[in-house]
Design a protein around this nucleic acid. Structure first.
Length: 265
DNA sequence: AAACGCGCCAACCGCTGTAGA
DNA sequence: TTCTACAGCGGTTGGCGCGTT
């Protein structure tokens, strides 16, 4: 399908918006809404294309836009969500109320990438990384006893019910075995390697450690049997870019952390 | 004061997904 | 089933402001 660029028509303005244009757009949308972006500029009397109007509204004029610098908490959330979701800016923005995908994308490229470059293991100091690796080992030996002193946010014990994957093969982890997981950085790497064995081990450990007497992994709801901290560790240590598993893992994290909960990806 | 370089961010571009005819 | 129109998304760009020389 061939489509003419929307702003190619003569007379349509491009470039920065003026205050007057903003006022016209806001007044129109407040009165009539924005059912049809294509028709909106003509009806509102703007010499802009619908696409330009939509972007101006969603990225700047919308009343629920949060202004000002990003807080440290917001930046940390972006980093974590980017680890989980990749460059899916709109999905990340959906979890940061008042922030737009464009804004988050800009912050990522201008600030956070640099920050991660300076401290490539995300938010942790070297000492904290060692703690995390130690915990990774203990997670595999005795999942119920593990706690993560560097992850205060995940100390909440009220983590509720979650939906497990339909089978252990529904989960894929980075790394080839537990020793590899302890000697390599905990960020997500080596996603294409042979992962099945670790999947089986960790998931069955989790199941057997819990109280789930009649519960199987295929049931829709169950109490996740290990403490939230190792769950978080597993979450960040393993392959989460597999879309089939992402909802499951994200929901788990929501249950155990302070990530804002939203209905759908 | 002028020139230059760089970072930031608003806006644009082009592609994809989807609904409806 | 195919075609078309549209909204939405992620990548990219251009211009402005600020700091440095």
């Amino acid at each position: 399908m061939v489509r003419a660029p929307c702003c190619e028509k003569m007379g349509l303005k491009k470039g920065p918006w003026t205050h007057e244009e903003d006022q016209i757009l806001v007044a129109y949308i407040q009165s009539y809404g924005h059912g049809n972006w294509r028709a909106l500029p003509k009806q509102a009397g703007l010499l802009r294309c619908g696409k330009s109007c939509r972007l101006r509204w969603t990225n700047y004029l919308r009343p629920d836009i949060k202004r000002g610098n990003f807080s440290r908490e917001e930046e940390d959330t972006i980093i974590k969500l980017h680890e989980l979701l990749g460059n899916r800016w709109s999905a990340i923005a959906a979890r940061l109320p008042g922030r737009t995908d464009n804004e988050i994308k800009n912050v990522w490229h201008t600030h956070l990438k640099k920050r991660l470059k300076q401290n490539p293991t995300n938010l942790d100091t070297t000492e904290q990384q060692m703690e995390r690796r130690e915990c990774e080992l203990r997670l595999r030996r005795d999942p119920q006893t593990v706690n993560f002193p560097t992850q205060q946010n995940f100390d909440n014990s009220d983590y509720g019910a979650v939906s497990p994957p339909q089978s252990s093969s529904d989960i894929s982890f980075a790394g080839t075995d537990s020793s590899a997981a302890t000697t390599e950085n905990c960020s997500m790497v080596n996603r294409d390697e042979n992962l099945t064995e670790l999947d089986e081990n960790l998931w069955s450990e989790a199941l057997s450690a819990g109280e789930a007497t009649d519960t199987t992994a295929s049931e829709a709801q169950f109490q996740f049997p290990i403490s939230p901290a190792p769950l978080h560790e597993a979450f960040y240590a393993h392959d989460l870019y597999n879309d089939d598993n992402m909802d499951f893992w994200y929901n788990m994290l929501v249950q155990t952390s302070e990530l804002p909960e939203l209905p759908e990806f």
